[in-house]
Computed example of a mutant assay.
Amino acid sequence: MIGTQIRPAGPYDEERIRRFLAGLSLHTQTLRFFSGIPSPKAGLIRTLLAVDGRRDAIVAEHEGEIIGHAMSYRGGVADVEIAIVVTDAWQGRGLGRRLIGALLARALSRGATTVGMDVLGDNRRVLRIIRRMWPDATMKVSSGSVEVTAMIQSAGVFAEQGSVGPPLTS
């Protein structure tokens, strides 16, 4: 993944995030947002870029364009809830795992020990990845989605940290 950079997101990414979201297939939009988003609204874009004491957001960038997005929110059932999406052309190349590793390294440095996520039940690829990364994860099916809770350090999350580089700072 030469030329791919994972870095903190910020308000300067608004237009690139808008293009990124608009470029996702309906299938990928639905797997991430549980519905299609034909025209990304300003509120959604601001939410995806929000970074404060409770929220964090990072992006993967290649040749100046965003190709992946990951965000976390402190609170809820687990210490940190996460959500990741990778553009269709970059899926299956390990970028999602790199985003998870970078995001959870940041959460761990802020004291988080458990991670949670909601995954659409039809998202078999991500559920398989979760099972490999967190074999002891708790999975609960609820209204067509799977609520996942796991220990951050029990995962093989940081096995690929060498490819991510040092933890990002905000």
Rank of each mutant, 00 (worst) to 15 (best):
M1C: 08
M1Q: 12
I2L: 13
I2C: 09
G3M: 07
R7L: 14
R7V: 06
P8M: 11
A9F: 08
A9G: 12
G10S: 10
Y12I: 02
R16C: 03
R16K: 07
R16P: 08
I17F: 04
R18S: 04
A22K: 02
G23Y: 01
L24Q: 01
L26F: 00
L26K: 00
H27E: 15
H27I: 01
T28G: 00
Q29K: 06
L31R: 03
F34H: 06
F34R: 02
F34M: 07
S35Q: 14
P38N: 08
G43D: 13
G43C: 01
G43N: 09
G43E: 14
L44F: 05
I45F: 06
I45G: 03
R46K: 13
R46S: 10
L48Y: 02
L48H: 04
L49M: 07
A50D: 13
R54G: 03
R54Q: 11
A57C: 01
V59Q: 07
V59T: 05
A60L: 04
H62Y: 09
H62W: 08
H62A: 05
G64R: 05
E65S: 03
I66V: 15
I67C: 02
H69S: 02
A70K: 04
A70C: 12
M71T: 11
M71Y: 09
S72L: 13
Y73K: 02
Y73G: 01
R74E: 14
V77A: 07
V77N: 02
V80K: 07
V80M: 00
V80S: 06
E81Q: 03
I82A: 01
I82G: 01
A83L: 08
I84N: 00
V85M: 05
V85W: 04
V85L: 02
T87S: 11
T87Y: 06
D88L: 00
A89H: 12
A89F: 04
W90E: 09
Q91T: 00
Q91G: 03
G94R: 03
G94S: 03
L95N: 06
G96N: 12
R97A: 05
R98G: 11
I100V: 13
G101P: 07
G101M: 00
L103Q: 14
S109G: 13
R110C: 09
A112P: 09
T114A: 07
G116H: 12
G116S: 08
G116F: 10
M117R: 06
V119H: 06
L120R: 13
N123T: 08
R125Y: 03
V126K: 04
R128K: 14
R128V: 11
R131F: 09
R131S: 05
R132C: 05
M133D: 15
W134T: 07
W134D: 14
P135Q: 15
D136R: 06
T138S: 10
M139F: 10
K140I: 14
V141W: 15
S143V: 04
S143H: 10
G144F: 05
S145F: 03
V146F: 08
V148N: 10
V148I: 15
M151F: 10
I152C: 11
Q153Y: 11
S154H: 15
A155I: 12
G156T: 15
F158V: 07
A159N: 15
E160K: 09
Q161V: 04
V164W: 13
G165W: 09
G165C: 13
G165N: 11
P167I: 04
T169Q: 15
T169I: 12
